[in-house]
Design a binder for these strands. Structure first.
Lengths: 203, 203
DNA sequence: ACAGAAGGCTAATGGTATTAGCCACGAAAA
DNA sequence: TTTTCGTGGCTAATACCATTAGCCTTCTGT
């Protein structure tokens, strides 16, 4: 029985492709084993189990999403919000399994995942600074932005929108709304003064 | 062996409670059977299987969400958006399992589920009309609204926000943004004329 | 060359859904 | 009151799935 030449990164990468095909929740050790022509228990030499495999895919996914968004945001100086938003949606459409994996909070012990999450957060906060938003305002704004984008792409993924032909236009509208909101943030503040205190790292 | 007195509605209702405790994805025939003190195959006399049970819970959930939102929106005439948004979030927080079940597109054959979904949509469109939004504008606005709310509550549910203490405030901010956006909808329109044509029923 | 670690394997266990087929209860009909 | 028969329980069996234990081969470093 020749060695299959597996390793944790290889197994996780294979699992990531499977997750994109069958969905993150449909990811199974049996499918991964079959993909590599190996018996299921053999995988335990490289991952601690299904949960650990999912964590690995999740870490990989967070890194990929961060890279995709950073790439989108770096490409332009004008309309950075739009570029990042479109990169976010594109990632979710092209990698539905990875996108779902992205939503699991990364294992704090996983250096790479935490770093990728932090990089993503930094990029968003830098963009918020372009709008003049810092501190708690930046936190609130980031939450609103992430909520809107995540809500849109996840509803789109489950077929929550009835008219497929118009989805691009609806997304453009949503991005416009977000841009308007960030521009007008100060004016629309209920009463809190802006930018008070340093922001605790948040997601 | 005395009859347990089960029926489809009873089984589905029990499943709904379990789903709220262990999550919609953690819902299992075994758990439902144990709850009613019955063997697993007995459930097949009332539901066609796990998928069908999920569909039943989903239909029930859509009805419950529609009722909660309608109740919230009826309570006030001013700040109807805020009332409905808070009702939406409250439902998601109090019934995490049902909320997740809500996201599955209802079986078109299920009269009640379709009616509940339609009622919910009607309520939202009526609110959009208060903002002067109809037709494709109402569709786009509804999608944005739903995206933002769904995104927020689902991120909140998975612990996506790091600072629990501030979440209420962030949500209030999000609602404020949405209200502003709906008020200013026409002004922020890229180029499309408003209210062209009747809206196809959408979600 | 050899020892030991590493990476495959089979076997066994337990949880899950599903199907087939049996049988008792209980209500309605005779 | 008795009989019938559909309904709603049940057990048994099958097929996945994940996980653990323990074996044995292969590679690698001394």
């Amino acid at each position: 029985m020749p060695r299959a030449g597996l390793s944790r990164p290889i197994v996780v990468a294979g699992a990531a492709e499977i997750a994109d095909q069958v969905g993150f929740d449909g990811l199974t050790l049996a499918a991964v084993a079959k993909r590599f022509g190996v018996a299921v228990p053999s995988l335990y030499k490289h991952v601690r189990g299904l949960d650990d495999l999912r964590s690995g895919v999740s870490a990989l996914a967070i890194g990929a999403l961060a890279a995709a968004i950073a790439r989108g945001g770096r490409r332009t100086t004008k309309d950075r919000l739009g570029a990042m938003a479109r990169a976010y949606r594109r990632f979710a459409v092209e990698h539905p399994g990875l996108y779902t994996a992205t939503l699991r909070a990364p294992d704090p012990a996983d250096q790479e995942a935490v770093a990728a999450g932090q990089a993503l957060l930094d990029a968003v906060f830098a963009m918020m600074a372009d709008y003049g938003l810092t501190g708690t305002d930046a936190v609130d704004a980031t939450r609103s932005l992430r909520s809107a984008l995540h809500g849109f792409v996840s509803l789109e993924a489950i077929g929550g929108f009835g008219l497929p032909r118009d989805v691009d236009r609806s997304f453009a509208r949503l991005v416009r709304i977000l841009d308007d909101a960030l521009r007008a943030w100060g004016a629309s503040a209920p009463r809190a003064p802006r930018g008070r205190g340093p922001s605790s790292p948040d997601r």
